[in-house]
């Protein structure tokens, strides 16, 4: 029997929770989570980390190994992962019940700073409204959206509903 991710592309709760660092690290500031579950021949993330915190792979099919304790949360990896599988979470951002998430977004038109957008989960379901804190355009055409979201949804929100095309 094929597993959930093999059938749907959606990871299980256990898989998702396994991407989080320890509480102490989470309280310190922004960190990357990598949602890469399959051994495929792919390695651009390794070179994307300016600090070398994603370990060089022995075999190009290896899963990425990120040193989350040292990760600075710079987010350079987000737009360079071909799988759009890397996100930055910052639980120290905003108020008590708020957090920031940075996600890759490849749709036009782009939202603008301070817009309220519909934040979606991994199955495309609406989770909450989110405020766009920053729109970081990359030269590769992959934009990174910085979103202010309710803290309780840091494990749920992973996309923004594309705006209708003009």
């Amino acid at each position: 029997m094929a597993s959930q991710i093999e059938r749907t592309g959606v990871p299980t709760k256990e898989q998702i929770e396994s991407t989080l660092p320890g509480d102490e690290r989470r309280a310190k500031g922004p960190y990357a989570v990598i949602e890469c579950w399959q051994e495929i021949p792919c390695d651009p993330c390794v070179a994307s980390c300016p600090f070398g915190y994603i370990a060089p792979m022995k075999n190009i099919n290896d899963l990425p190994k990120l040193d989350q304790e040292s990760c600075t949360g710079c987010g350079n990896c987000i737009a360079l992962c071909p799988g759009l599988a890397i996100f930055i979470i910052d639980e120290t951002f905003g108020g008590e019940d708020e957090a920031m998430i940075r996600i890759p977004h490849e749709f036009a038109p782009l939202p603008e700073k301070e817009d309220i957008v519909r934040a979606l989960d991994r199955e495309g379901n609406y989770v909450a409204d989110a405020e766009v804190v920053r729109v970081q355009k990359g030269k590769s055409g992959c934009t990174v959206l910085h979103l202010l979201i309710p803290k309780k949804f840091i494990l749920d929100i992973r996309a923004v509903e594309p705006l209708p095309m003009r």
Binding site: M1, A2, I5, E6, R7, T8, G9, V10, P11, E35, C36, W37, Q38, I40, P82, G83, L84, A85, L120, D121, R122, E123, G124, N125, R158, A159, P162
Partner: peptide
């Protein structure tokens, strides 16, 4: 009974509710 392509590609379209 399973997705033949890479799961990360499947995840991208799952997030679009396809």
């Amino acid at each position: 009974d399973r997705i033949g392509g890479y799961w990360v590609h499947a995840s991208k379209i799952a997030r679009l509710k396809i």
